[in-house]
């Protein structure tokens, strides 16, 4: 009887594995079949001349160029906001903080990593409304607010990956610099950070990947269907993931739908590449990216 149960577990495991692989391949295969034909210059630039569009002289109306630019701006801005703060916090927690502080802030960052992204979007939205009512009525949901919310969203990945990769360093590396007469700050900047760099950068890459794909935050903080290339920090913008969401809801003809498949394929390519790159650099750091909903 026991033997039977053991065999059953083995068979069950294989069936489940095959099922999962089947799902994923069906999924990717479907996307490839539908999306590949639409990839091309037309998809990105529409009828406009690519060179003119890149130089900002021509507006692109029926391509996803503005959405790509919007996504890049968003990622760039959020990374600028989140990376310095995150890395510094990580260094403080790993090198300076006492055990009590470590424990408390560890819990704080775990909680932040667990908050659903829509709640962080809601926070950004309320912040925009608050600023609008109390300071300047030109402020509304915009590129800046979105980037700020996304920065909050990805902050825990950067903090924890920095902290963990510094703490993982062997005591040998940690003490050599000090023994040679370096002070604590010199030891951190010249020895510890260079040694932990692969872990820290894998955290940053994961953060960038999340910024590029998190639709829920953008949904509440200023993304719109048609805005063109963003002109200022306070303007609304287009983004690739929102474009996909919008098309799935509002497409009116097969060409638009094909554009949605093409955009999905591009976004999938970018995000999958970033995630695989991060995993390749540091295998074990990434579990808690997955806390995020």
């Amino acid at each position: 009887m026991q033997g039977f149960a053991e065999k059953a577990v083995v068979v069950f495991s294989w069936i489940m594995t095959i099922l999962l692989c089947l799902f994923v391949f069906l999924f990717i295969g479907y996307l490839l079949i539908q999306g590949l034909p639409s990839l091309g210059r037309e998809l990105i630039f529409g009828q406009a001349d690519p060179l003119q569009a890149l130089l900002g002289r021509a507006r692109v109306f029926d391509g996803i160029f503005p959405a790509i630019v919007g996504t890049l701006c968003l990622v760039e801005l959020s990374a600028t906001l989140a990376v310095p703060v995150g890395v510094c916090s990580g260094i403080y927690l790993a090198e300076y903080a006492g055990p009590g502080m470590k424990k408390l802030s560890g819990m704080f960052f775990d909680i932040l990593a667990g908050i659903p992204s829509i709640v962080i979007g809601l926070f950004g939205f309320s912040l925009a409304v608050f600023l609008h009512n109390h300071f300047d009525d030109r402020i509304g949901p915009c590129l800046l607010i979105s980037s700020l919310s996304l920065a909050i969203l990805v902050l825990p990945y950067i903090v924890r990956s920095t902290q963990i990769s510094l703490e993982e360093l062997s005591p040998g590396i940690r003490r050599t610099g000090l023994a040679l007469g370096a002070n604590k700050l010199q030891n951190i900047t010249y020895v510890l950070i260079p040694n932990a760099l692969s872990g820290i950068s894998s955290g940053i890459i994961l953060a960038v990947g999340r910024c590029a794909e998190d639709t829920a935050v953008m949904l509440l903080t200023g993304v719109v269907a048609t805005a063109g290339v963003p002109s200022s920090l306070l303007s609304q913008y287009e983004a690739l993931p929102f474009y996909i969401y919008y098309i799935s809801n509002q497409y009116t003809n097969p060409e638009e739908l094909a554009g949605g498949y093409g955009a999905s394929l591009i976004l999938l390519g970018v995000c999958a590449f970033l995630f695989m790159l991060a995993y390749g650099m540091k295998k074990h750091l990434s579990y808690w990216t997955l806390y995020r909903a």
Binding site: Y30, E213, P241, I247, L290
Partner: peptide
Amino acid sequence: LVRFMTGIPTVIYGFVGIFL
């Protein structure tokens, strides 16, 4: 494969879900 799956954006799961 599993790591690759973590990199698939949520909106794409939804998109394929709608049409497939």
